[in-house]
């Protein structure tokens, strides 16, 4: 690495080599290799992170708002299975870079357009998992609920939804991690997220790019782990008891029809 002309480095983590410089970049401001502006440091990273999270959360909220009710309804009436199950197969075949590029070329750049692209990316796993989860609820249980005089809406709300929550959350986890990962290429569509140091390396330098990669990786793992925690909290206690013995695979997806 060429450190010439960048002034005295305060590399506290020098023993880590380039990774040390990257960690240093996260905590301390640097002069941009392009000259002029200061880049890096906690407040710069926090600004990027905030935009990254705002984009991801908005996209996830809309995707959940669309696909969970749709999946519950399709699962409840038992129709549209072909659509719901193949949604994730089709979604997987379209590369996220191609989707973003398509939006940039045909719809335009900007925050709203990008949210829309990420929503399209996030819907399939949630829709597929919600549908599969509802269909997986034992018919006897639904019949019992109907026998108790529950209306269709009550069955969805009080029986099918609670029993489906773990698998629905499996879908949300997959989508959320995918959205957080894809938000990294958001600067291509003019939204300045944590991907900015990765895409615009001339402004941030190599250590900035490595720093951003570290933070993005960490953010994805934190998203996965924390949503896993929420998933465990939301799993009805009765369901935990009955599945504890049967479930041999600790990862959220237990059915192979469900998306991976």
């Amino acid at each position: 690495m060429d450190e010439g002309g960048r002034g005295p480095m305060t590399t506290t983590f020098a023993f880590l080599g380039q990774f040390g410089e990257a960690i240093d970049f996260i905590f301390d401001e640097h002069e941009s290799p392009a000259g002029g502006a200061q880049v890096g440091g906690l407040s710069n990273m926090w600004d990027l992170m905030r935009e990254h999270l705002k984009l991801s959360i908005e996209a996830m909220a809309i995707a959940c708002g669309v696909s969970i009710p749709l999946g519950l309804w399709l699962g409840h009436i038992g129709k549209g299975g072909f659509l719901a199950i193949n949604a994730s197969n089709v979604g997987r075949a379209v590369p996220s870079l191609a989707l973003i590029a398509f939006f940039v070329a045909y719809v335009g750049v900007g925050f709203t357009n990008l949210v829309l692209a990420l929503v399209l990316l996030a819907i399939p796993p949630i829709l597929t998992n919600t549908y599969t989860a509802v269909r997986q609820v034992e018919r006897d249980t639904v019949d019992a609920a109907r026998g108790m005089g529950m209306t269709g809406f009550q069955i969805v709300r009080r029986v099918e939804l609670p029993l489906s929550l773990p698998l629905i959350f499996g879908g949300i986890r997959i989508s959320a991690v995918n959205v957080v990962a894809t938000a990294t290429i958001a600067p291509l569509a003019g939204v300045i997220t944590l991907g900015d140091p990765i895409i615009n390396v001339n402004t941030y330098g190599d250590e900035g790019r490595l720093a951003a990669a570290l933070v993005v990786a960490l953010l994805a793992v934190v998203t996965e782990v924390s949503l896993g925690g929420v998933q465990r909290m939301l799993t009805p206690r009765g369901l935990k008891l009955t599945t504890a013995g049967r479930r041999r695979h600790p990862f959220p997806i237990t059915r192979r029809e469900a998306t991976s």
């Binding site: 080599g17 380039q18 990774f19 991690v177 957080v180 990962a181 894809t182 990294t184 290429i185 991907g195 990765i198 790019r209 490595l210 951003a212 990669a213 570290l214 993005v216 990786a217 994805a220 793992v221 996965e224």
Partner: peptide
């Protein structure tokens, strides 16, 4: 599986 591949590429580069 969780680490985004775009991040993984840059973490591996050095």
């Amino acid at each position: 599986y969780t680490v985004p591949s775009i991040a993984a590429f840059f973490l591996l580069l050095p």
